[in-house]
Structures are given as structure tokens and as C-alpha cells.
Design a protein around this nucleic acid. Structure first.
Lengths: 229, 229
DNA sequence: AAGTGGTCTAGACCACAAA
DNA sequence: TTGTGGTCTAGACCACTTG
């Protein structure tokens, strides 16, 4: 005996069959019940293994339709959205934060569109600088729905980034990553040459279909966002 | 009766308790057995729900240590690594591909380091251009371990990007995203102004600890990588 | 040593989609 | 209509870690 069949071992064997083309791309693979019989385990164990592979993009499963090997295995990479302070400290540098401005302003059209706002109601507009070892690390330009962070919430010492992460669990939204040029304002704030290439992230956050915040994070030159799979 | 308790409903209720601070950050939550009794369901159902929340970064679970609400909920975003052709076609544009060069060359030091190569053995060096509606979309500069794609594999019409995705299921590796400036060579190939800000991705791929390929994808100006959570 | 999550089993019913 | 995956149950044993 070699103990009970684990779902990891079933997954590994299924991976092997996909890699070796024993189960070629597009082909239908045996039912869970058949595989359970073959591996001598419960169907739930097979289910757990195949569900894992489907989540990773290697299999496509449909009720009644059965399970097929994905024609184009979609690699899914995950990256962690950390608080900027943790990002800096994780690099072994000292973190600093400076709030540059905080006022109510009517949002420009792109921000209104990103947050799906209809009216021109003013939003709370923040500009802040995140520092690493006293040097500019990232510029944060944020628009916040005042209903979620009124005047009583102050961002002098705690960044809006951190406050929102800690106070808005379970929200959805979108990201977009792109490159942008340092204009006069950015080069001044980030203390870099005008015309430098800067990595930037636009992010919108919703909670239960309510718009919460839109933010642009522009990083100082040389920044890389790293992840593994 | 309202039917069996689903793991999704358990997860939703747990989410609510975290959001409302009924389970505050850092606090230990009841055992699976207690929650199962409270919800009137099997422990496996509670386990499925809490495991899901833990994978999303909201809970931290340890055998014997119990389950705690994460102090800093790490948001995990996932993005799909698609074949560039699909990316272009998904935008409703015509895809084109042009192989610019293909030769065996000793890799430069950064590539050797990224692939953890010890010797100076030559790699297959490819340069190719991906087109959208006949305009440059993305420049691909790739180094491939010849053991995995010898001379018999030709990349005239099928991009190495696509060939590798289709032929190397189950591989690991790393990504890094950054911004870079268009130098003379890049501006010529991507038909953009010198000094433009370009979004770029470095990627390394390993299969079973064997180095497979290192690639730099440099996108034409204006490209955004988009994802949702 | 003991408590907690991780997993497996065997069986059952259900939801969905294909035929 | 029917076949397939999705899920729930009740019980059991095990692995890991903390005390």
C-alpha cells in the first residue's frame, strides 16, 4: 500500500498526460468517475485536482460537456497589490510619505469616466509623494468619493493608499499598467530628468458597485514590477 | 427550509464579518467545527469557504494555530498571459508577424544571469516584430535554449511566443514590467519618435528547473496592459 | 501532548448544457 | 432527456505546530 491517493498526485499525473500529449490539446479527457476508478480514489479527489488545473487555465470544464485540454493554455500570473510602504520596506529602504495637496475638486472627464460618475459632483483630490531613503519613489494622484472618506479622515501621516487598503477589503476594480514620459511637473516631484521613461499604474476601485477611488501611481525611473509564476 | 448551506454563502458571511470588523484584523476566528455548527453545514463546506478567502489573502490559516484575519489584506490581481496574436485580434485588429533575425549567439551576461546559465554556450537569438493592422505593435527579442527548439523548429511564420506557449505547458518563471525609452534602434523598428516612453516586459521561462527562454517584449507607444479583479 | 486545519471517502442530489 | 461537473454530508485519519 502507498496510502490514499492525494489530489496533488492526481493533478501531477494529469499534468504529465497533458505535457506528453497523451491528452492532446482540444481532446476530451475521461470523466471524473472513470479517473476516480483508474486512480482508485474518490471522485471528489479527482474533482479537486481537475478544478485546480482548470483554474490555472490548462483545462476547460463544462457540465455535461465534459473536460477538455485547453487549446491555448492561458498562463495566469498573479501579482500582489501591496501597500507602497511595504513595497519600500521590503527593499530594505526607509519609507517616507509627504502629503502635497488635499482638496475638493470636480474631477476631469477621464476620471469621471473611469469611475462611471454621471454628475460633476466634486471628489476629494489628493497628491502625495512616497519616499524611499528620503528620495522620491512614487507619486500618488488620487480621487476619492467623499462619501467614503470625509474630512474627518486625514491623510497627513497615513497615506490614502494604506488607509484604503486597510479599510476597504472586498472591493473590485481595474488596473492598467503603462509607460509615460516625465513632464516638467513629474520630473520636479520625482527629482528625475525631464523626458525620463516612468512606469505608471492606473487603478480604479469599486465596492459593491459604488465608485470609491481612482488613482494614478507614477514611479521614479528604474522601477520594475516583479512577479513569479 | 432554504436548502443546503453553500460554501459561497459561508464565504459571503465571513466576508461580511471581516468588512464590518466583527472579526477585526489580526483576530482569531472560530474553528471550522464551530462555524460548521453555527451555519448548520458540514465542516468541509466551511473549509472550502475559508480556504478560498485565505487564497485571496484575507485570512491566514495554520494548523493548530487557527485562522486569523490578515492584518494587511494583500490584494492579489491576476492577469492572463496571452499569445500576442490573440491580444491583437482581441482588439479587433489584423495581426501580422515578421521575423527579423535568427542566429546562434553567446548570450550577454544579463541573459545568462536571468536563465541561471553557467557556461557561455550559445543560445538561439531571435528578433521579431508583431504587427497590428500592419503597424508595429510589439518588438520581441528572445533567447532560447537550443535544446528545446533546434534548427528544425522554424519561426518564420509562427512566432516563438506562440510556439512556446503551445509546446511548453507547465513551466515556471518570472516577469518584470517596466518603462524604457525608445533609443534609435527601437524607434526605428517600432516606427515611433526617439525618446518615446515604451512599456516593456522581461520574462524568463523554466521547465522542470531547466532554462528555456528569456524574452523582452517592448510595446509601441500607448500600449496599456489591463486587468481586473 | 493536544488542537487545528488538510484531506480522503462513499454516497447523494442538483444545475447546467448538450443532444 | 440525459450525461457531466458542482457541491454537500458525515465521518475519519493525518500533518503540522504550538504550548
Amino acid at each position: 500500500m502507498d496510502g490514499p491517493t492525494t489530489w496533488q498526485s492526481v493533478r501531477a499525473e494529469a499534468q504529465r498526460r497533458i505535457r506528453t500529449r497523451e491528452w492532446p490539446p482540444g481532446a476530451q479527457i475521461p470523466h471524473e468517475a472513470d479517473l476516480a476508478a483508474e486512480f482508485g480514489c474518490a471522485r471528489a479527489t479527482v474533482n479537486r485536482a481537475l478544478r485546480d488545473l482548470a483554474e490555472a487555465g490548462y483545462l476547460e470544464r463544462r457540465r455535461k460537456g465534459g473536460t477538455r485540454v485547453a487549446l491555448t493554455p492561458v498562463r495566469k500570473a498573479t501579482f500582489e497589490i501591496s501597500i507602497i510602504r511595504q513595497d519600500v520596506e521590503g527593499r530594505g529602504q526607509d519609507y517616507g510619505y509627504r502629503l502635497l495637496s488635499d482638496a475638493l475638486e470636480p474631477p476631469p472627464a477621464p476620471v469621471r469616466a473611469a469611475l462611471k460618475l454621471t454628475g460633476p459632483a466634486p471628489l476629494r483630490a489628493l497628491t502625495a509623494l512616497h519616499l524611499a531613503d528620503d528620495k522620491p519613489f512614487c507619486l500618488e494622484r488620487r480621487w476619492i468619493n467623499p462619501a467614503f472618506a470625509g474630512d474627518d479622515v486625514r491623510f497627513d501621516t497615513v497615506s490614502a493608499n494604506e488607509w484604503l487598503v486597510r479599510n476597504l477589503a472586498f472591493s473590485g476594480g481595474g488596473f492598467s499598467f503603462y509607460a509615460t514620459l516625465a513632464d516638467a511637473e513629474l520630473s520636479g516631484l520625482l527629482e528625475c530628468a525631464p523626458g525620463a521613461a516612468l512606469f505608471a499604474i492606473d487603478r480604479t476601485t469599486f465596492s459593491e458597485a459604488q465608485p470609491i477611488t481612482a488613482v494614478t501611481l507614477t514611479y521614479a525611473p528604474g522601477y520594475r514590477m516583479v512577479t513569479e509564476i
